[in-house]
Design a protein around this nucleic acid. Sequence first.
RNA 1: GGCCGGAUAGCAAAUCGGUUAUGCAGUGGAUUGCAAAUCCAUCUAGACCAGUUCGAUUCUGGUUCCGGCCUCCA
Length: 462
Amino acid sequence: MLKIYNTLSKHKEAFQPIDPNKVGMYVCGMTVYDYCHMGHARVLVMFDVITRHLRRHFPKVEYVRNITDIDDKIIKRAVENKEDIYSLTNRFIDAMHEDEQALGVLPPDVEPRATDAIDQMFYMIETLIEKGIAYQGSNGDVYYSVRDFEGYGKLSGKNLDELEAGARVDVETDKRDPLDFVLWKMAKPSEPSWSSPWGDGRPGWHIECSAMSCHHLGNHFDIHGGGMDLTFPHHENEIAQSEGANGTTFVNTWMHVGFVNINDEKMSKSLGNFFTIRGVLESYDGETLRYFIMSSHYRSPLNFSDDNLNLAKTSLTRLYTAIRGLSTSDAAMDEVSQRFDFESRFNASLDDDFNTPIALSILFELAKAINSQREKDIDQANALAQLLKKLGSYIGILQTDADSFLKQGVDLADEDIDAKIKQRDEAKANKDFALSDQIRDELTELGIILEDSANGTSWRRG
RNA sequence: GGCCGGAUAGCAAAUCGGUUAUGCAGUGGAUUGCAAAUCCAUCUAGACCAGUUCGAUUCUGGUUCCGGCCUCCA
């Protein structure tokens, strides 16, 4: 039974989709004015793991992840770059897709853009005004009236009066209540705008996600996710908008992914302590990044450091080493999977609120079993290796050829390395161990590690 | 100030009211010409103080420290 922690109830709950045959999931995606950083990577990877697991449970999963391609930061950045907004956003959307691919993240089923959903936003804003929960200020901006939505604060555990006490005074706006938020914002002369019943302008951030999620998944759907920092105010406001307009429950399960930290502080644009995905990819491969992200539970903080990235790389090396050289024939795999409980325990760990650290620990137990069987029963070792690969596929790792993973990033050409190994073999045959050790040391210097076995010598990167 | 989280061995990271987490590193052994890889064994835990309990790292209360949200943020 799949259990998911729900931010709304603050408990793990048995997950039951509204329609037993179909799960609808919406995740807040990127605002595309810059390259994605490691925090984005965590959301991309974890919801990819979640989607892969949901797909094994339910016949159909509709995964929607939006793109915010219009907002203040985008406008500002376009002006700074003297670049057209669409050229800017398209550039960063392409970059995001490249990053996503490097991390082994499968594309969502639908990736709606805010600028394609303006009509749906009009409709929702209009409904809210009709219902008296939204109003137009004298400056033309349309606001949501938080006092007119009874459940405001139920997701984030905040209370309007307490928020009010600490609220900043926003002098420029025309809000009835300082906590009211903007649904439609009047455009300044040179800014991009859409004509609307309330004047030329652009949508507020929160309304986009309400409009896009309800449009694609209906007014009431199963899972809504995002980074933890979106809980308040973004997701709180989405609930207010969607439930206010539609008069029905918006989302059953709210999921929030924890932060990526640097020295125990949140990585963020505002703090300026962020690392872009593509920057990190210069030093570590995408699978290592993905492993690193999965090595802690999705709701815990994840500390970003070279030490931890190197640990991830070493861990993956161990798993690939176990698979290496074994055939991928799946003949006996099912039988082996029945006989051992690796697969059922692996699935159970993911069923328990997507506990990837436990799932990974089971892969290590499996690797140990493979290594132990290698000399004793090669057929069983093959079958177990196949099982390891299969379990890896469930979370998007171990799908590349073991040899290529273990040899990647070495400067010397394969032929040159093979020639050196041959030289060393000859020296060994002549019992010239001084020479053979010297050759091995030379290769070690170049980041190449030799491994002798009964079947000859193989190598991997250090 | 209000509202949330967290504190696990050298490092990373889970589970769990009583039994080996797991990985890296360390130590001893097997294997190897020597290594590497692998296997076997093994050392390091549960911030602090009370309480509940036959028994708590796990439950409850308090203390200390750290982090997050309350403004844009994944």
